[in-house]
Every structure is written in structure tokens, then in C-alpha cells.
Design a binder for these strands. Sequence first.
DNA 1: CCTATCATGTAATCCGTTACATGATTAT
DNA 2: ATAATCATGTAACGGATTACATGATAGG
Lengths: 182, 182
Amino acid sequence: MSSARLTETSYIVLGLLEQIGPATPYDLKRMAQVSTINFWNVPHTQLYTECARLAQQDLLNEEREETGRRRRIYSLTGLGRRALEDWRSEPTEQLDEVRDVGILKLFFGGDPAKLAGAQLEAHGRQLEACEQLLEQLDANGTDVPRGWRLALEAGMGHEREFVRFWSGLSGVGFDQAAAGSA
Amino acid sequence: MSSARLTETSYIVLGLLEQIGPATPYDLKRMAQVSTINFWNVPHTQLYTECARLAQQDLLNEEREETGRRRRIYSLTGLGRRALEDWRSEPTEQLDEVRDVGILKLFFGGDPAKLAGAQLEAHGRQLEACEQLLEQLDANGTDVPRGWRLALEAGMGHEREFVRFWSGLSGVGFDQAAAGSA
DNA sequence: CCTATCATGTAATCCGTTACATGATTAT
DNA sequence: ATAATCATGTAACGGATTACATGATAGG
């Protein structure tokens, strides 16, 4: 009913619910941890509030367990399903920024070599984690959605690009970094 | 005085002020448009409020024009300069996500080929804009800070990676995208 | 002189983060 | 049983986006 705008977080909730069916916010959290977490993390508290918000707009159905914990269980309504489909089927030209604190420090005069050391370390670990996740996906065979794999590969591409970029700076001192093209 | 935490936006303001000296928020906006804007945009209204906030913490000095518009002019205090230096000289292992709506749609089942079309278009334009900016930087020769160029090159690397990724999907229909490794 | 656009700012709203808190479940 | 960790949430706060609004400047 209320016409508050839908954010990316909204679509993450709608999309996850479409894939697993009725679930609690906590279920969504666990699911996100092995899927979107690599490129779009959403803290668990937001999943609770976002589910409630979407329910208010009749995009989700909300039920409560009769017994015990009385957890809230959410599922897509027809309206929610349509909102998701509309969003998904509309290609976007939106360009999102690669907001990276390491690059920001570099921009404002941080020491390239020192930054590169820390960043290479971190991105290397991240890349390994991605590779492990990829293996898991492969192990599960065909029942993992196409998009999961594609998004993971996209993320890994950027990780490799980060590694490439920082590698070029890792041996470079303060002075040499200034040198332009030969 | 008040001990509110400093955000990346704070450091952008501090950093820009270090480079141009005393300036109004509007000056900062114009400066950002030819420098950080490519990888970290900050809306102009935030520059006004952020300057005020930093002044309250004694990180910036605030003066007002005597005449006419009575614009506020900000400059770094010693405290501000030190805060910037501390932040900048501390390498970070922080990994920021590449939150991209196109990838998100892909993840949730958007059509790879359709998305690729729109995304290639947009990223292609962006890459061109980067190249033009790079030429401008080169034209200005040596008085453009080292970090500007490095950050721009980092951004361009990611743009090229986007192009590479979506290119791989542009000819792919709904069905073929499912095919794994041979 | 009138209009349009640029310049400059304020205020409200809302999302997202952080802090906190308690009920289950498992391990020892 | 008790401690520790996992599960499940609520509430406060603050930064960021959006909407609005008015004063200068330039073009016609």
C-alpha cells in the first residue's frame, strides 16, 4: 500500500525468497552467506526490517509460527513476484562506482607500495575464498542457479583486476610511481 | 570536540582541501567533478553538511565572506591535517564490494544477453570519458598529483574488466548461458 | 528587462549501521 | 548444570539522498 521506493536490498530479499520459498529472515541471512555475500553483503538486521517493510507494502506475506518461538515466516505475494520480475527483466545502464578505500587513499597521496602490500594480501585471500566457493557450486552440480555462477565469476574477474593493479605498484617506491609512460 | 567518527566522505573533504587550500563547498564540488567523481561521487549537499560537521570538530576552519553572499570558506586546521595524514598513511586491508546493479540482476535471473547489451553500451561510454580525462591530465603535465592518475588507471582497469565480462555474455542466449565447462 | 541557468544552501526523510538484548541449542 | 555459541530480534543513531528554495549571473 504505502508507496515507499524499493531499494536494491528490497530486490535481494524478493529474489532470495523466490529461490527458496517461504523463509524467515534468518534463513535469508544464511542463504546470503553463500551467495550474494561475495559482492553485496546485507547485514542480518536489515533483513528483518526489510521483510517487515515489504510485508507492509503487500509484496510479502507474513505468517507467524503458532508454537515456540513464533518466528515470522515470509513468502512472496503475487504483487511481490511481479515487482521482482519487472525489475529483473529491465536491463539497466546504471553504472555503480567501485568505491574502494585503498584506491581512495592512493588518490589522496597514500604510499603506493605500502598500500599494495596490504591490498594484495587481502585480495589474495578473497580470491581464494571465491575459488573455494566456486568448487562448492560445481560439486552441487546443476541445481545451483545460473546467475549465482555468473555473478561469482564477475566478482572473481574484479578480484583479479585488483591483484593485477596492485601488483604493478607493489615494488614501486614513492618516487618511481610518478614516472609516466616511457 | 565532538567525537563523531570520520567517514570516507570526511576524508574526501579533508583531502580535497589539502590540495586546493581554502575553498567553499561549491569549489570542492567542482574539483570533485574532475577528479574523484569517477570512482567516488559525493553529492553537493553532502559537501555542505560535511564541511560544517568537520568544522564543529575543529578539523576545519570556517570563515565567512564579509561582503555580498557571505559564503563560507573552509580550510584545514592542524588537527584536520593530522587526521588526514594518519588516515592516509595507514594502509588498509579493507575490501569493498563491487556493488553493481547489473550483476545483481544477473544473479537473480536477468537475461544475460539483454543485460550485456545495456551494460556494454554504458561501460563503453564511461571508458571513453575516462580516456578523455586521462588526456587532460597528461596535457596538464606534471602539476597533477600522482594519486589522481593512479586512481584513474585503477578505475579504467575495472571498466575494462566490466567490458570483458559482459562481452562474454553478449551473444549468449538464455539457454547457452547455462552450459558449464566442456 | 526578462528569463533561464548556475550557484548556494536548508530541511526532511529514510535507509543502513551499530549497539544491545534475550531465547535456544550444543558441548563439556 | 553451566558456559558458550547460535538464533532472533528491537531500538537508536547518523549519514546520505531527495526535495525544496532563493540569490546571482548571463544571454536574449
